[in-house]
Simulated scan of single mutants.
Amino acid sequence: MSIQKVTDKKDFVKILEDNGYDKVATFLTYPNGENDSLKPKKRAFLPQEYIDSDDFFSDINISNGFMFVGLNSAERTSDDEDEMINSDKYQTMHDVSKKSHDMSIYQSIQNTEAYGSFAMDIMNKFVQTTVNDSWINKICEELEKSPKEYVDNVMQISTLSPFDPYELFRFANDKTDRAKEYMSAKSNFDELTSKINELKKQGVDSEALKDERKPYASVMKKYDKEVTLPKLIDRFISIDAKVFVGIIKLLNPKCLICFGDKSYKLASSIVDHFDLNVAVEQVLHYSYTGSKDIEDITEYKRNQVKNIIDKY
């Protein structure tokens, strides 16, 4: 049995929702993008009534040949009590938290062929995990060495457990001693970092505190090397890569547009390993706010997307 491309929007959405992808994937449609009555960051949210409407199916686009790719879908908690926050479906890349830059995506794709495109992160259900460049390189290296497998189904991920190497989701009595040691070191590290930053603002020397912080950093680094990274590699090869391949086969895009170099490296590695017939392109991550070398970062990001659309 092989995965067949789905061309009907409602069939595609049904497969996503039946298999749990509505919690980790999305469509780049922003119905409140020009709603001046909302604060800018609030405009990213997809209200449930919109998701249930004909407008949603009119706006989403699974035939333009493009799929946008982020790095990791984080498990988030929010104290936002806004009444409009009434759904957890398709909220990836529609975050409304204070630190969100998701409306930058809207600014890059509005009134282009890319509007309404399907999008998902290449890693899913992460718990407070930062993925650095050396880890990305190691994952790609290990994927290349792993046996090639044929993905013939869209994986069911509704019951997929969060990737939790620090055991944050475990009860205290279930945590390993090493995880407890890590979290204790992290707590001390974060506390000292906060003090160091405060002294820096005051122009006061903080070398003593930096020296005090070093042992905690060593504990964290050792744990990540011996525990987190091996678990991450195993998770990516056994689950995330196959999840990604299944969705690519279902959508059958002509081009993956990756936000940032990390998702680009991983997507390229998967495409090569599984012999997928799809191009991979990279644009600046939507959280990137610019540098002195770029006069208008919004226009720069928009032009990157438009150039890829024109290319394909």
Score class of each variant (00 low, 15 high):
Trp135Lys: 06
Met120Trp: 06
Asp59Val: 11
Phe118Gln: 01
Thr130Ala: 11
Lys138Trp: 13
Asn132Leu: 13
Asn86Ile: 01
Val127Asn: 10
Met155Asn: 15
Met67Asp: 06
Met155His: 14
Thr77Asn: 01
His94Ser: 00
Ile62Gly: 11
Ala119His: 10
Met84Phe: 15
Val69Asn: 02
Glu149Tyr: 04
Ser146His: 03
Ile109Thr: 09
Ile122Ser: 00
Lys180Ile: 06
Asp52Phe: 09
Phe66Thr: 00
Ala114Glu: 12
Ile105Ser: 05
Ala74Pro: 00
Met84Glu: 10
Lys175Ile: 02
Ala172Gln: 13
Arg170Glu: 02
Asp79Lys: 15
Ile109Gln: 03
Asn173Ser: 05
Ser104Glu: 07
Ser63Asn: 15
Arg178Pro: 00
Phe169Ser: 11
Pro147Leu: 12
Ser63Arg: 08
Asn111Ser: 14
Phe163Glu: 01
Thr112Arg: 03
Ser73Ala: 08
Leu168Gly: 02
Ser100His: 02
Ala74Gly: 07
Trp135Arg: 12
Thr77Met: 01
Phe57Trp: 05
Asp88Arg: 14
Val127Asp: 05
Ser87His: 03
Met123Arg: 00
Asp164Ala: 07
Ser58Thr: 13
Met84Leu: 13
Arg76Lys: 04
Glu142Trp: 07
Asp79Trp: 01
Thr130Trp: 04
Ser53Ile: 13
Asp152Gly: 12
Glu141Met: 02
Asp177Met: 02
Asn86Pro: 04
Asn111Gln: 07
Glu83Gln: 10
Phe126His: 00
Asn137Gly: 06
Ile139Glu: 03
Tyr166Lys: 13
Ser117Glu: 08
Lys98Glu: 11
Gln91Thr: 03
Asp164Ser: 05
Pro162Tyr: 10
Met123Trp: 01
Tyr166Cys: 01
Tyr106Lys: 09
Asn153Gln: 15
Gln48Thr: 07
Phe118Val: 08
Glu49Thr: 09
Met120Phe: 07
Gln156Glu: 15
Asp79Thr: 14
Gly65Tyr: 04
Lys99Asp: 06
Glu49Val: 03
Ser63Glu: 15
Asn64Leu: 03
Gln110Pro: 06
Ser161Gly: 13
His101Glu: 05
Val154Tyr: 10
Ile122Leu: 02
Tyr90Arg: 02
Ala114Arg: 04
Asn124Arg: 15
Pro165Tyr: 03
Glu141Gly: 03
His94Asn: 08
Cys140Gly: 03
Ala74Cys: 00
Ser158Val: 04
Arg76Thr: 05
Phe68Cys: 00
Met93Cys: 14
Met120Ala: 04
Phe126Ser: 10
Asn72Val: 02
Ser78Cys: 03
Thr129Trp: 01
Arg170Ser: 05
Lys98Tyr: 04
Gln107Asp: 10
Asn61Val: 06
Val96Trp: 08
Ser87Met: 13
Thr112Leu: 12
Leu168His: 10
Thr176Trp: 11
